[in-house]
Simulated assay, not measured.
Amino acid sequence: MDNNKNVTKWYSLAGVWFGGIVSVPALLVGSTLINSLSFGNSLLAGLIGFSFVVLFMSLLSIAAVVQRKPTVKLAASSFGEDGAKVIVGLVIGLSTLGWFGIQSNIAGASFSKILFEVYHIDLPIWLSSIFWGIIMVITAVFGFKYLKWLNYIAVPAIIILLIYGLIITFQNHDWNEIIAFKPTQNMSLLQAIGFTIGFISVGGVISPDYNRFAASKKDAVLGSIVGIVPSAMCLLAIGAILAITQGTYDIVEIFSSLGFPFFAMSILILATWTSNVMNMYSSGLAFNNLLKLPDTSRSKTTLFVGLVGILLASLGILSHFMSFISILTITITPIAGVVISDYYITKSYSEKTLPINWKGIISWGIGVLIMLLMDSQIKNILGIAASMTFYYLLQKFLKI
């Protein structure tokens, strides 16, 4: 146990999670939900979904604080050392790769919008997405150490842009218009809850990577709650409000219509750039570990993975945003179910790990299968419950 690092208070952790939440995809969740739900139901779906993730995130974080271990090492007891590297590493690597494609697509669409509206140059979005994807990959490979300086500019800039957007919005619209809004499409509340779960499910599962250094279990839990729920709810609400008042659910179109499109789109690109470099760095690192390559190969792995992400961006992965979120929910939340069952329910957590623990892998697979095949609107909750239950049953009755 590393007591020297046992110094991070809850407000520091909250700041880390706040910085991760304040991003373009968080706004995209609000603008997507409001297409099919009322404003009130969009907020309710967000509150339930975000709270559900913070619940299992807190359980994982408490275990991480006690053991002082990151996600993959914490999962080694239930998945086996190699099993955890493959399952958890692959899921994290693919999910961050998908996020990279989506955010590169957003940056590309924003850049094409700037060129057209300011200079009347019609650059195809796919080509613009490739251009910005290359810049972001190069930053992740060679300029990662300078990222914090971009963050110092980007996070305050997007907050100022959001405040400006709300001020402009409420000069011409009132609150009654927001409350009375009727969506053109229809989505069930439970489906919307699953969508919001998917948005931060990756953060929930990898939370031990950050929260293991909390000063106490209370700090880990409080930092997660304060850092995620209020900020995620605010960004969801702002995304929904802007979508309602600007008459479009396209996040690029929304910011373009606020006035000063050059500055608005530039901030959007900057904010996307900073968070997307993190996505590419995490994805490259995950695949490098997964392939058991030396640390010196990380740059080459990141570059290769980045080319795949650029391809996804050029193919317009942004238009499949909801499908991507659904895949994240299906594959990630059962991981949390297995680890929580191992640590809290079966109390079988052990420092002595097998290379492969088939009980954990089978339980995870059953959770994924249930979420994949079921039509039930509560399958997102059933998946994590199933992985917990099956792991408990296998541990109790299968002595291998």
Rank of each mutant, 00 (worst) to 15 (best):
T272K: 01
A271R: 00
S207M: 12
L268S: 14
Y249A: 15
G227V: 09
S207K: 04
F260V: 04
A237H: 03
G223F: 08
D250W: 00
D219R: 00
A215E: 15
M280F: 15
I244G: 06
V229F: 15
A243R: 01
G227E: 10
V205K: 00
F255V: 02
K217F: 11
L290F: 12
D219N: 09
N289W: 09
A264L: 03
A286L: 04
L222M: 06
V202R: 00
N276V: 11
R212W: 08
A240W: 11
Y281C: 04
S231L: 15
V277Y: 04
D209V: 05
P208D: 14
P261L: 03
S231C: 14
M280G: 15
D250Q: 00
I244S: 07
V252L: 05
S275M: 04
S216M: 07
I206L: 13
S256V: 13
I254K: 00
T272N: 13
Y249W: 14
A264Y: 03
V229G: 06
S283N: 09
L285C: 05
S207C: 14
N276T: 13
S283G: 08
D250N: 03
V221G: 05
V226D: 12
I225S: 15
N211C: 11
T272Q: 11
F262G: 10
I251S: 09
T272E: 14
R212H: 06
S283H: 07
L290S: 05
I254W: 06
S283R: 02
I267N: 05
M278P: 01
V252C: 04
V226W: 10
D250Y: 01
A220L: 01
L290M: 07
I267Y: 10
L285Q: 09
G227W: 09
Q246I: 12
M278G: 10
L222K: 01
F255C: 03
F262Q: 13
F260L: 05
N288C: 10
V252P: 02
S231I: 15
S224I: 12
S282G: 08
A214R: 00
G239P: 03
A243S: 08
A215K: 09
A243E: 05
V277F: 06
D219P: 02
K218R: 14
S224M: 13
Y281R: 02
I206W: 10
N288Q: 11
